[in-house]
């Protein structure tokens, strides 16, 4: 009896624990958010930042010059928001893909979604499409790539986990080659540099308009996945079991693939190929709050946003010239993932 009561208490505590962890992650994100204004070529100290932000709603007498306002609203805020959005989107997509495919080794990049979206976007840039056109192309490319990957993997009669990763790598390479093709035929003075720099992954030239454009698809996909987060748990037990537990798996899988790909494509269309975030962050979040999607999904959103924002700050600060974001996320992500693989108790075992 005593043992039972004690277990009740730990149960309540573990629920509370998860809540606290989410709050700490949220505070971390807010702190990095404020810090990010103070970093860079034109630093905005937190006090001034609060004043300027408050002036938007309160009738305050401006004690700062107009440049500060321009820096905050036209340069830094869009970039900071874009970093948080892209980081959160890639991490959420990665976490949801992993549950849906019952496979902890997948992410938007490994499934080929990023490469497919990259191909679509590159094609959009090549044909000088509008921002909306580029996003649509990225979405179609990403959806095509994931569908191909999934379609091939279920036809491979082998270890399904391995089959999915391998077919993802193959489809990813195929679309990367297709991107190279576009680069090869692109105008070397105009289109080629645009595609190349965009592909390396950078948030340097973000405009407020870009942020608005990706906000809608990312929120749409994110909110739907967030609402379905309990069902992601059940899906992670395998397709057959999920159906027997009462889930329409065909519908659910379609929704998850569309949402994840929508979020990935939106991210890729403004920031290029930023790898490893969607693989590493869900694992890190799982280490912190456990595998239950009820807390794993919010944790991935907050952690992903904070992580990419921090990495983007580093990209701005580390060298006199900006380092492409995709290079940094790989430099940080690969050693971290190796650490996870070698200490598998943290990963998924």
């Amino acid at each position: 009896m005593e043992a039972v009561t004690r277990h009740r208490i730990t149960e309540v505590e573990s629920k509370k624990d998860a809540g606290w962890k989410i709050i700490i992650l949220l505070i971390t994100l807010i702190l990095i958010f404020i810090l990010s204004f103070a970093l860079g070529r034109y630093p905005v100290p937190p006090g001034q930042l609060l004043e300027v932000l408050a002036a938007r709603v309160l009738p305050l007498e401006p004690t700062w010059n107009a440049t500060v306002e321009t820096v905050i609203f036209q340069v830094r805020l869009p970039r900071i928001l874009a970093a948080i959005l892209v980081g959160a989107a890639l991490s959420t997509a990665g976490a949801a893909y992993q549950g849906m495919f019952k496979n902890p080794l997948v992410s938007p990049d490994i499934l080929g979604a990023s490469a497919g979206a990259g191909f679509g976007a590159a094609l959009g840039i090549y044909f000088s499409f509008s921002m909306l056109g580029i996003q649509l192309m990225a979405f179609v490319g990403g959806l095509l790539a994931v569908s191909l990957t999934y379609g091939i993997s279920i036809r491979i009669r082998h270890d399904p986990m391995l089959a999915l990763v391998l077919s993802g790598i193959m489809i990813g390479s195929l679309f990367t080659a297709a991107i190279s093709c576009i680069k090869y035929i692109a105008d070397p003075y105009d289109k080629l540099p645009a595609i190349t720099f965009w592909l390396m992954g950078s948030l340097a030239s973000i405009t407020p308009r870009d942020v608005y454009m990706v906000l809608i698809p990312i929120l749409l996909g994110g909110i739907l996945l967030y609402l379905l987060r309990w069902r992601l748990n059940v899906l992670a037990m395998g397709e057959e079991e999920a159906r027997v537990l009462g889930i329409n798996t065909t519908l659910m899988k379609t929704i998850v693939i569309v949402c994840c790909t929508l979020m990935t494509a939106a991210s890729v269309s403004i920031s290029g190929l930023i790898g490893w975030v969607g693989l590493v962050i869900p694992h890190l979040a799982r280490m912190i709050v456990g595998p239950n999607y009820r807390v794993l999904l919010p944790a991935s959103i907050l952690l992903g946003g904070a992580y990419l924002l921090l990495v983007d700050d580093l990209a701005r600060l580390l060298a006199s010239m900006e380092i492409p974001l995709g290079i940094l996320t790989a430099l940080i992500g690969v050693p971290f993932f190796l650490y996870l693989l070698l200490n598998s108790k943290w990963g998924w075992k």
Binding site: G99, K102, W230, N233, A236, M237, L245, G290, N292, W348
Partner: peptide, 16 residues
């Protein structure tokens, strides 16, 4: 399963 779910969460899946 590939993810280390808590036993109570596994049982709760029966409520889906």
């Amino acid at each position: 399963p590939p993810f280390p779910f808590q036993v109570l969460d596994v049982v709760l899946m029966g409520r889906t």
